[in-house]
Design a protein around this nucleic acid. Structure first.
Lengths: 276, 276
DNA sequence: ACGATCGTATTGTAATTCAATACGCAAATA
DNA sequence: TATTTGCGTATTGAATTACAATACGATCGT
């Protein structure tokens, strides 16, 4: 984007920029660049200088300057500690609040997950299906947890998460293939399955059993069961997870104990009401 | 904004738009409008048509169309249920994730708040000071809670929240006056203090006691104690809350039982490390 | 069958953003 | 202490970009 590169990209022939053929006519570049500034902080949390942001976002320093100025006024950025650098502002939390508030599913799921946590004494999560990743929207932890395991907004690849597997079990084979094909099948741990056929096998198993069971694939020492939450058309839109530690459970005993609970909760949240 | 109105606003004389004299030269209007589209969902959660968004955001339908198209491509909006309307997309959660991840204070506070919740069996929160409001960043609930009491990103006015009072107790009188003057002193409940002098009195009390005690002011039946978290320059940046129900506690017994715990946690989080 | 409203697409106009440049300041360097 | 480097800020001419009126097809409710 920007300058000569940008002018070329504006020509009829759009080579192969990034996304699959976005309508250059309607896309508002300035907005995209402003968002890119915010997104730069995903690869570098904490304060950054204009130049650093520019490098990460692939923008000119001048552009970042004006975008940062605007985002500063709007509260989406704030000045760093000593007036040096920029970091994310609290306004980004407001948008997340609006999001969480706007999904009836999330409101309905909140008491259900609370009960589930109290009943299981393990960590329980609700994740939202978002194509190649799932995104945690509700989290109820038990005892000590890693910091990231407490954060809403955390994403995990669909292909190697218990929730993702449970969701894929409710998709057609074609859709599962599409997800596996477009995913970067990179191992998060040494135990992560990266062979498409092996993953398909696990999806089949989840179809038979009605839940997915995953251990050590996204975090070593963690075992999790999950069941998909379906919308009124029986399409999977989310998943209920129960996650525990392999120091306390074998995968089998964990599944035996908690898969019925996850299934019950997911069933209670399925159907009836629109998710959003 | 936009069109003739906008051209007028671009002239040297900026009448009295909204914020106190923002530099029209550097402000990127398109970005502001795109953000305005996202913010429209704060006054109307759920799916909206282009026209509805336009009305709420004060923009032209055409403008909203292109902004929505862009935000759709970027994942910050998604199509409504049956392809009709737009609602917030999961990407807004990603930004919140980045924010939470980027504050060392939040990472440090997570285990502390966990302990505090397990020790108190009441709801505990960490809120971030943001001028006229405080914004909840970490929430650990006990039993059943109202939905909103579980949401990160929720804001409460500084003047009537326990956290806000605790924070004001660490500000100068001038700063407190400034906050009270600029706040809309609107009662959230019949018990909310709206008289500046009465609030100043409470702030004084919090200064003496080292914690703030508030009940029925933001939610009927709720009692809460809070202590400010200070940065390395002894400036308040956040607050630790402990909130319970008046059906189980009197304000006095609640304060006696939990104010030491809140003070201890806030103390442990203060000083030393930069908050962001 | 009709009318309203939805989301989408097009287009000429001109206002907007772009990016090079310069400035003052603070901190790290020598 | 002198110097350099990098920061955030501000300005400006050039032209790319966004604006908003308009039109279109689909879908829903009457």
């Amino acid at each position: 984007m920007g300058g000569f590169v940008n002018s070329l990209a504006t020509l009829p022939e759009q080579p192969d920029e990034d996304s699959p053929a976005i309508d250059q006519r309607q896309f508002v570049n300035s907005l995209g660049k402003g968002i890119a500034v915010l997104e730069a902080f995903s690869s570098h949390p904490g304060a950054m200088s204009l130049q650093e942001i520019a490098d990460l976002a692939g923008l000119d320093k001048s552009t970042v300057q004006r975008m940062a100025y605007t985002l500063l006024q709007l509260g989406y950025l704030r000045k760093g500690l000593d007036g040096r650098g920029f970091c994310l502002g609290t306004k980004v939390l407001d948008r997340a609040f609006d999001f969480l508030r706007s999904w009836p599913l999330i409101e309905r799921a909140t008491p259900v997950l609370n009960e589930l946590q109290l009943g299981s004494h393990e960590r329980v999560d609700l994740s939202i299906f978002d194509d190649l990743t799932i995104c945690y929207a509700i989290r109820r932890q038990s005892k000590r947890q890693t910091f990231y395991a407490t954060l809403v907004g955390r994403r995990i690849p669909t292909f190697c998460s218990s929730g993702g597997r449970a969701i894929m079990a409710r998709l057609s084979d074609g859709e599962v293939d599409s997800i596996l094909r477009r995913s970067d099948l990179i191992a998060l741990t040494p135990k992560t399955l990266t062979d498409p056929d092996a993953i398909r096998e696990e999806v089949q198993r989840a179809r038979r059993e009605g839940f997915s069971l995953v251990h050590d694939e996204s975090l070593i020492g963690e075992v999790a069961v999950a069941c998909a939450v379906l919308d009124h058309r029986a399409r999977p839109v989310a998943a209920v997870h129960i996650a525990g530690s392999l120091s306390e459970w074998s995968p089998e005993s964990f599944a035996k104990r908690f898969s019925p609970l996850a299934a019950e909760a997911a069933g209670a949240l399925s159907g009836a009401i629109a998710p959003f």
